[in-house]
Simulated assay, not measured.
Amino acid sequence: MRIDYFSHIPGLISRLRQITLEQKQFTLDQKLRVLIEARVSQLNSCVYCLHLHFREALRRGELQLRLDSLTVWHESPFFDTREKAALAWAEALTLLHDTRAGDSVFSALRIHFSDIEIVELSLAISLANFWNRMASGFRREPEFETASKGQGHP
């Protein structure tokens, strides 16, 4: 790792971790949240976070087949229209410079999700992007023995 950012600002990183953990209280389906976080991590090429989210998804009962086809979710028959709307929103917010979070993507999202779910989904996407940038930028690598114990974000 380039710099152990936790050792430099442990209080702030701990508070951000706590905010991330509070997502478990969301009304949004937790299995979907983790799937979205995994897709965001794929888009950002964050090996640490992708490993973390895939392991959590499997613990939550996600199928390996769906995780394997997550990169091609647009064409995959393994995701329903609700999940595809959420995945499209995750891509729209993650690739904001290119997508501008267009109205068509948002309109499709509103068909399947309540306002609170959209806010929670957007927060989950934003937090995943934050952690991806920290872990990737500082070249954090998966620690298989600690990741398997469910340690969470750095």
Rank of each mutant, 00 (worst) to 15 (best):
L12G: 05
F144T: 00
R60T: 04
D68I: 01
N44H: 06
N129Q: 11
S136I: 08
S76D: 02
I118M: 09
Q151C: 02
D80C: 02
F144V: 00
F6P: 07
Q151V: 15
A108R: 15
T94E: 03
W73Q: 02
N44Y: 05
V47W: 06
L123C: 05
G61Y: 10
W131G: 11
D29M: 12
L16C: 07
I36K: 04
A85E: 09
R139A: 05
N132I: 15
E91F: 07
E117Y: 01
H112N: 11
R55C: 11
A38W: 09
S122D: 04
D98G: 08
F138W: 03
A90G: 15
C49H: 08
H74P: 09
K84C: 09
V40H: 03
S122C: 09
F54G: 00
H74Y: 15
F26T: 05
I118E: 07
S107W: 13
P10A: 01
Q64G: 00
H51W: 02
R15Y: 05
M1G: 15
D98W: 13
T99R: 15
V40M: 07
I111Y: 14
F130Q: 03
V105D: 12
M134E: 05
E117I: 00
L95F: 06
L21N: 06
L50H: 06
A108L: 14
P77M: 01
L70R: 01
Q64D: 00
S41C: 15
L32N: 00
L63C: 00
F106H: 14
A128C: 10
S114P: 01
A90L: 08
R55I: 08
L28T: 05
I9T: 14
V105E: 13
G11L: 03
R139W: 04
Y5E: 02
L32K: 01
S126R: 02
A85W: 12
E75F: 08
L52D: 05
S41P: 10
P142H: 02
F130G: 06
R15H: 04
T20I: 10
T81Q: 15
A135M: 06
N44C: 07
L127Y: 02
D29T: 05
